[in-house]
Design a protein around this nucleic acid. Structure first.
Length: 316
DNA sequence: AATTCGGGGGT
DNA sequence: ACCCCAGAATT
C-alpha cells in the first residue's frame, strides 16, 4: 500500500509523464540504449539519436556485430564517445551470455554504474532498485530544505530513495522521481504551484527553493589556444585519427596543436574545464599521419572540428 | 576523493 | 553568456 506521498507522485506521473519512445516498449535493450545516451545528456538532445540508433541497431545482436566505426558514427553529436565504445563492448558480452537479471549483473557490464544498473533493472525488469541522478538529488534537497551543493548531498539522497522506494511498480516510481525533477522541480524557476508533492516540501514552506541545493563548486576554467589546420585538396580534407591519450579518442580530427591563446580567435569552444580559443589556417598539403577524406563522406568527427571545417570552407 | 571524459538545450 | 544535464572510469 503506497504512502500518501508515494501515491501523490505516482498519480501525477501516470497522468503527466512525457510519452518518450523508449517508454512504449520498456524491454531491456531499448531502455539500456536510452539510459546510456541520457548519461549527462538531456532528453531533448538524445531523442533523434535514439530513433536513429534503434533503426540502425534494432537488437543487441545487431549492435554486437557492427564495426566500431559504424557505432561511433551513430553516436556523433552526443559527446562522451567513450560511452559508445563501452556500450559496444557490453553488447558483445550480452550477445554472448544474455541480458543480466539483477542490479549487480547489469553493473558488471562496461559503462554501467550504480545509477544506470538500477535504472535499467527497475524500468525494464521491475526489479526493486532505488536510484539517484541529478534530478533526484535536487528533489531530495528541496523536500528537505538542504542548501549544500548537490555533490555533497548525494550519499544522503541514496539513503533517502531507498527509504521511500515504492514496491508496486519500481520502474514507474524511479521515473516519477526523475520526471518531477526534469519537468517541475527544475534547477531554475521550479513550478512549485503545479508540484504534486508540494505539501511535503520544506523548501517551499520556507521559501528557499532557489537556494536548495547550493551551487556546485566547480574547478576554475583553463583558457588555452588551439591552432587548427584545414588541409584541403580538391574536395577532400586531411584528417588523422585521435590517439588514445588525446581528446576525441576514436574520432577523426583536423591536425591541431596547442598554442598560446590567440588575440583574435576564429572559433571558441569548451571541452570540460578548458575554454579553447582557436585559430584556423587553411592549407593545401596533407601533414604526415593524415588521410584524405572526401567532404561528402566524412568519418566521425568532433563537433568543434566540423565547425572549423565549415568556417574554412566558407572562406575558400 | 578528484579528475577526466563533450556537446547541446534551456534560461 | 552561463548552467547543467536520467554518470562512469580512472587515478
Amino acid at each position: 500500500m503506497p504512502t500518501e506521498f508515494q501515491a501523490a507522485l505516482l498519480d501525477w506521473y501516470r497522468a503527466e509523464a512525457r510519452d518518450l519512445p523508449w517508454r512504449l516498449n520498456p524491454d531491456p535493450y531499448p531502455v539500456w540504449i536510452s539510459e546510456i545516451m541520457l548519461q549527462q545528456t538531456t532528453v531533448a538532445a538524445i531523442l533523434p539519436a535514439w530513433e536513429r540508433w534503434m533503426r540502425r541497431f534494432p537488437t543487441v545482436d545487431s549492435l554486437a556485430e557492427a564495426p566500431e566505426q559504424a557505432v561511433l558514427e551513430m553516436w556523433q553529436g552526443l559527446g562522451y564517445y567513450r560511452r559508445a565504445r563501452l556500450l559496444h563492448a557490453a553488447a558483445k558480452a550480452v550477445a554472448e551470455s544474455g541480458f543480466p537479471d539483477s542490479v549487480e549483473g547489469w553493473q558488471r557490464l562496461p559503462g554501467i554504474g550504480r545509477y544506470t544498473s538500477a535504472a535499467i533493472a527497475s524500468i525494464s525488469q521491475g526489479i526493486l532498485a532505488p536510484l539517484v541522478d541529478g534530478n533526484v538529488v535536487r528533489v531530495f534537497a528541496r523536500l528537505h530544505a538542504r542548501p549544500e551543493p548537490a555533490n555533497r548531498l548525494e550519499p544522503e539522497a541514496w539513503d533517502w530513495t531507498a527509504s521511500v522506494m515504492e514496491s508496486g511498480d519500481p520502474g514507474a516510481w524511479n521515473q516519477a522521481l526523475m520526471e518531477l525533477g526534469a519537468t517541475v522541480c527544475t534547477p531554475a524557476n521550479p513550478r512549485c504551484l503545479f508540484c504534486p508533492v508540494q505539501a511535503w516540501c520544506q523548501a517551499l514552506r520556507q521559501g528557499v527553493q532557489a537556494e536548495c541545493p547550493g551551487p556546485k563548486e566547480k574547478p576554475a576554467f583553463v583558457t588555452i589556444g588551439h591552432e587548427i589546420a584545414v588541409p584541403l585538396e580538391d574536395g577532400r580534407v586531411a584528417l588523422r585519427p585521435a590517439g588514445p591519450d588525446e581528446w576525441w579518442n576514436g574520432l577523426w580530427v583536423l591536425p591541431w596543436t596547442q598554442v598560446e591563446p590567440p588575440e583574435r580567435p576564429d572559433l571558441r569552444f569548451t571541452v570540460t574545464r578548458h575554454r579553447i580559443s582557436a585559430r584556423i589556417t587553411v592549407g593545401s598539403d596533407a601533414p604526415d599521419g593524415t588521410q584524405l577524406h572526401p567532404l561528402e563522406a566524412l568519418p566521425p568527427m568532433p563537433a568543434p572540428h566540423l565547425r572549423a571545417l565549415r568556417i574554412a570552407l566558407s572562406r575558400s
